[in-house]
Simulated assay, not measured.
Amino acid sequence: MPAWRMTFSRRSVQSEGVTISYLDSGLVGSTVVILHGLAGSATEFIPTAESLSDFRVILVDQRGHGHSTRVPADTSRAAFVADVVRVIEAEVDGAVALVGQSMGAHTAMMVAAARPDLVERLVLLESGAGSGNPAENATMGDHLRSWPLPFVDKTTAREYLGNGPLEQAWIADLEPRHEGLYPRFDPEVMVQTLDAVAVPRWTEWESVSAPALVVYASGGIFSEEDKAEFVRRGQRAQLIEIPDASHDAHLDAFDRWIEILHAFLRQDQPR
């Protein structure tokens, strides 16, 4: 992990009644936009941003997450794509490197397909063209609804959730309210979002023309067949696998994740 702390400014754009909040490192350099996974937020990628100090990094709270509108009326893939496009167009004059994990990687893929002029390179961590099914998604919703909220404090949250890397990220981002601590997401919105992500988007993926780095974890959620098919059907996709890592490899295999990410982002860049 980086030993220093980067200072971010928090800004937002409005999108048809929805507020999309994001953190901007404000540094000089090519711009990297990072999209978190389901039930996550921009803050879990702050260590990643701090390790990319030669880039300007923008960390987006996607709709339904973090400091963005918590319960948006529209949870379609098109709405998520439009939000990211708005942030890029508001902040950058040109194209960016777009990075995403899980649901955020699916969003990134869709942005690259819809607006190739805005994406010069793409990094997808633990992503497919569409994954999950309504039964699995409903089970996830039941789990999120079962949390004994509010948590009195972070110690209580840790006792219930555990102390793994993903759980630590959730706990660090809990929202303090008068009566206690709450997650920065709504379970119903999470299920709706997952249902949309589950729809296969092969046409979109096969249309992506930007160079794409597809990163999978050895202990992630995708089978070897899934990984091979996804990479094979990409126009300019290259595959790297991180050993001894989970679906949240950016958290539990941080050093290797940064090594891979930095090498890809620096390709063909002036030194």
Rank of each mutant, 00 (worst) to 15 (best):
A112L: 01
V57F: 12
G141M: 06
L149T: 12
A39R: 14
Q101K: 05
G37P: 09
E159V: 14
D153A: 08
V92P: 02
T43W: 13
T156E: 15
T69Q: 03
M109E: 01
H36Q: 09
T75F: 01
A95C: 01
H65V: 00
M109D: 02
S51N: 13
A135I: 11
E50P: 14
A82E: 09
R70T: 07
G26N: 08
A78N: 11
A82N: 13
D61M: 03
S68M: 02
P72W: 02
A114T: 01
F80N: 08
S53G: 14
V119W: 08
R56S: 12
R63C: 05
H143C: 10
V152H: 15
N137A: 08
A112T: 03
V111W: 07
S127A: 15
R115K: 12
L98M: 01
P72A: 11
T43P: 05
E136L: 14
V33E: 12
L35E: 04
L118W: 08
F55M: 08
D83E: 03
S102D: 05
A138P: 06
A135T: 12
I58G: 10
T156H: 15
L124H: 05
G132S: 10
A42S: 15
K154E: 15
D142L: 14
V32A: 11
S68D: 00
R158P: 10
A157N: 12
R86I: 01
N133Q: 11
A42F: 09
V57R: 04
G104C: 02
S127W: 10
V60S: 08
W147H: 13
T48N: 14
P134M: 00
A95N: 00
A42W: 13
L38R: 12
L124K: 04
I46V: 15
L59Y: 01
F45K: 12
G132P: 14
F151C: 08
Q62C: 10
H67K: 11
I34L: 14
A39S: 14
G29L: 13
A138L: 08
E120C: 00
L38F: 11
A73G: 10
Q62V: 13
A157M: 14
R77I: 12
R77H: 07
